[in-house]
C-alpha cells in the first residue's frame, strides 16, 4: 500500500470529517440514557408470562415477530436459489492446494465448531444466539473444510437438500398450526415448561431447531457453490 501516491487533500479531508463524526457519535452513544417506559420494558414485562424463555431477544424473534422471521428465511432461500441458478457447481475447487497447517488446524477445529453450533441452536432460548447464529457457525465449519480439503470433499447433495426443504416445511407447518390451534400465526401450541430449563419456551425451541437446520444447509450450499464455481 502506497499512501503517498494515492492520498490527496480531499481524501484526507473526508477521513478527517469521518473521524470527527465518529467521535461525536461515540460521545452521544456513551452518554445516552433512555428515560421512561419504553417498548422494550413492556416486552420484558410480558415475556416471562407468555413464553417462559430466558432470552427475551429470542422470544421477540420467534414468538412476537415470528412472521418477520418467516420473511427473513424466505429471503435467504431466494438468494441461495439465485446463486445456485447462476453459478452451477463445477467439480474443480478453486482452493485446491495442500496446506499442512490449515489441514491440522481444521481437523481439530471442525468437530468443535459443529458442537458449538449445535449448542448455540439448542440453547437459543436460554443464552445469546439461536437458530441463525448456530446455523451460520455450522456452515462456517463446512466452509473451512472446503477451503482445506480441495477437490476431495463435497456435500452430499441429497442429504443437504432434504434437510433444507424438510426444515423449511416444518417451520411453516409450525406457524400454521399456531393459526389453527391458537389465535395467530406462530403462537404457543406446546406446554411452556419452567423458566431457565432446557425444555422450556414451548414452540421457540422447535422453531429454532428448524431455522438452524435450514440456515446451516443453505449457507454451506452457498459456500460450496462459490468455492467450486465454474470459471466464467
Amino acid at each position: 500500500m502506497n499512501l503517498k501516491r494515492t492520498l490527496r487533500v480531499e481524501t484526507l479531508l473526508v477521513a478527517l470529517l469521518v473521524s470527527v463524526t465518529t467521535l461525536v457519535l461515540m460521545q452521544i452513544l456513551l452518554n445516552l440514557h433512555l428515560a421512561g417506559h419504553s417498548l422494550g420494558d413492556e416486552i420484558l414485562h410480558i415475556n416471562a408470562a407468555s413464553t417462559q424463555s430466558a432470552n427475551a431477544v429470542t422470544s421477540v424473534v420467534t414468538y412476537f415477530r415470528g412472521l418477520d422471521t418467516l420473511g427473513e428465511v424466505s429471503i435467504l432461500f431466494l438468494s441461495i436459489f439465485g446463486v445456485a441458478l447462476h453459478m452451477p457447481r463445477g467439480s474443480k475447487n478453486l482452493f485446491s492446494y495442500h496446506n499442512t497447517l490449515l489441514y491440522i488446524g481444521v481437523s481439530i477445529l471442525f468437530p468443535l465448531m459443529l458442537l458449538f453450533g449445535v449448542y448455540v441452536i439448542l440453547h437459543g432460548h436460554l443464552s445469546p444466539g439461536g437458530g441463525f447464529q448456530g446455523g451460520v457457525i455450522i456452515a462456517g465449519a463446512f466452509l473451512l473444510r472446503f477451503l482445506t480439503y480441495g477437490d476431495h470433499y463435497e456435500l452430499k447433495e441429497r442429504v443437504v437438500s432434504l434437510s433444507e426443504s424438510l426444515s423449511g416445511a416444518g417451520f411453516i407447518v409450525l406457524g400454521l398450526l399456531g393459526l389453527l390451534v391458537g389465535d395467530r400465526i406462530f403462537t404457543q401450541i406446546l406446554p411452556l415448561g419452567t423458566l431457565g430449563e432446557l425444555l422450556s419456551g414451548g414452540v421457540i425451541e422447535l422453531i429454532y431447531i428448524f431455522v438452524g437446520l435450514k440456515v446451516s444447509a443453505e449457507i454451506s450450499l452457498l459456500a460450496e457453490h462459490f468455492v467450486k464455481a465454474h470459471n466464467v
Binding site: 445469546p128 444466539g129 441463525f132 447464529q133
Partner: peptide, 9 residues
C-alpha cells in the same frame, strides 16, 4: 452477543 456471533462467522 447475538449480533457478535453472526458477525464473527
Amino acid at each position: 452477543p447475538d449480533v457478535a456471533l453472526t458477525e464473527a462467522v
